[in-house]
Write a protein that binds this DNA or RNA. Structure first.
Ligand SMILES: NC(=O)c1ccc[n+]([C@@H]2O[C@H](COP(=O)([O-])OP(=O)(O)OC[C@H]3O[C@@H](n4cnc5c(N)ncnc54)[C@H](O)[C@@H]3O)[C@@H](O)[C@H]2O)c1
Ligand SMILES: NC(=O)c1ccc[n+]([C@@H]2O[C@H](COP(=O)([O-])OP(=O)(O)OC[C@H]3O[C@@H](n4cnc5c(N)ncnc54)[C@H](O)[C@@H]3O)[C@@H](O)[C@H]2O)c1
Lengths: 229, 229
DNA sequence: GCAACTTTGTGCACTCCTTCACAAGCGCTT
DNA sequence: AAGCGCTTGTGAAGGAGTGCACAAAGTTGC
């Protein structure tokens, strides 16, 4: 009767609008299906896939449904299709040029990590300020002075940068990255970077991760009564 | 095949219970207030503290209220009190013994990272299987064969372990850690570890972080074309 | 000692995420 | 060709987390 009153203002159809929580799991799903493909698996059910990825089947199905996923009822998902769909959503089809600033212990490890190349990223330059490092070769790349950043960023169209410098230098490095056109930053320094709202920063704080583990560990220890099921 | 990873049904007991989202921010708050103390700041308002930590003032106040933290209305929070309260909640008062398994690129970086010691963690041993690594000294510790794990874990009461081995070895390393009494694991290998429900695993996946950045980057790029609403 | 001012602590509403449950759809078998 | 068993896709319910607004509570100034 009153169907006119609240009629469709409810647009906001999320065309390409994948929930943030889902986005956070897509890389995991992608890796799992790639592994399955390597093992020769061609089809997989949401239940099996969810178990491998460590999530619930319902969550997995809902996540995939946001991609407009094409599973087959009664059968499951075709692994190759999932790889393509998730890969396209994550932009793995293209190759993102990436730079690392700070080639210390962590920067070395990152530069030598092979896992990036296989997931759609190409390391185009390493930057450091230490004179004894500049000019040396790390992971097949010559370490360049940080002042070269703008030129490299422009030439290669770098949009993603990794900050692996000590905390005191991180902010000014971030400023320079932003000035050079980088608007996605992965920050390993334990500081909160202040950047324009158009720039996306993700922080990886290893000490925090350990502290969260310690918190749960402590609570478990204090809780003398074990949580019996 | 037959073992089903039974998802944790344990209901989060709210007795002294801090919400998980809050727990995830406590390490950040702790670092910020320690920095403030180093700068000689003695009191701080929720607004200033929130700005420094990059969260909203309301969220910060609610988070702190879960610790039963006592701020002073009209004034703010006493920095030294916050350090103690958050530190106690996170278990920083005690010193958690930690071991690292896998002393490759990443393991080296972690072992040399000074940030752990200052946050309540003590690195007690490094393990690796490579004969050329065992016996060498890294970050002031001698790398030991992985077989020594049970003895060390028992002697030092190790409850937290870090997995920094290649993916194929991670599961068996995790199994050994669990067998040795470790029930908190920080996993850097890009695999989902299967462990008993009593064991807490946190995964740090650097490639995933980059992919999430790439996703947003890509969507931003695509949005330039349309969405003129 | 009182009033004005400042900032906390929190109830409430809202949004986002997860879980549940089941109808719809597909292939296989008979 | 039709039924049967299996699995997806998704509304709806439930729960967790966030933002808002304001009363309560303390401090400062006069
Ligand atoms: N090593 C780890 O496992 C680890 C763990 C967690 C966090 N972190 C953080 O990651 C960051 C790097 O850690 P690390 O162990 O590699 O430190 P590091 O000291 O070994 O390396 C830092 C590098 O950054 C370079 N650098 C300094 N200022 C610079 C500037 N303005 N421009 C360019 N380069 C500059 C230095 O020359 C050095 O090579 C630190 O902020 C640290 O807190 C490291
Ligand atoms: N390097 C990075 O920046 C980076 C980034 C993201 C993820 N990762 C992941 O972290 C892990 C380690 O990376 P890495 O670059 O240090 O690799 P790496 O090959 O340099 O080091 C791995 C080390 O583990 C040791 N090891 C192998 N099997 C073992 C076993 N069964 N017991 C004990 N030790 C064993 C090896 O001897 C080697 O020293 C990998 O899973 C990698 O995918 C690394």
């Amino acid at each position: 009767m009153t169907d006119r009153a609240d009629a469709g203002r409810d647009v906001v159809v999320r065309r390409g609008g994948v929930p943030e929580a889902t986005v956070g799991r897509l890389p995991l799903y992608h890796r799992v299906v790639v592994d399955l493909a390597d093992q020769g698996v061609e089809t997989v059910s949401s239940e099996a896939l969810a178990a491998t990825a460590g999530v619930s089947p319902a969550k997995l199905r809902k996540d995939l449904s946001f991609l407009g996923s094409y599973g087959t009822r009664g059968v499951g998902y075709e692994v190759s299709v999932l790889i393509d769909q998730i890969g396209a959503e994550l932009g793995i089809s293209s190759e993102w040029p990436v730079v690392i600033v700070g080639v210390g212990h962590l920067g070395h490890a990152l530069a030598n990590y092979g896992g990036f190349a296989s997931r759609g990223f190409r390391l185009v330059a390493l930057f450091d300020d230490a004179p004894q490092l500049v000019g040396t070769e790390v992971a097949g790349l010559t370490v360049r002075p940080f002042a070269d950043l703008p030129a490299v960023a422009r030439t290669d169209g770098v949009l993603i940068g990794v900050v692996a410098t000590p905390a005191p230098a991180a902010q000014q490095v971030a400023d320079a990255l932003v000035a050079a056109g980088v608007n996605s930053i992965l920050n390993f320094a334990p500081v909160v970077l202040s950047v324009p709202s158009s720039v996306d920063v993700r922080r990886v704080d290893l000490a925090s991760e350990l502290q969260i583990l310690a918190f749960h560990q402590q609570r478990r220890g204090n809780d003398l009564t074990q949580v019996a099921r």
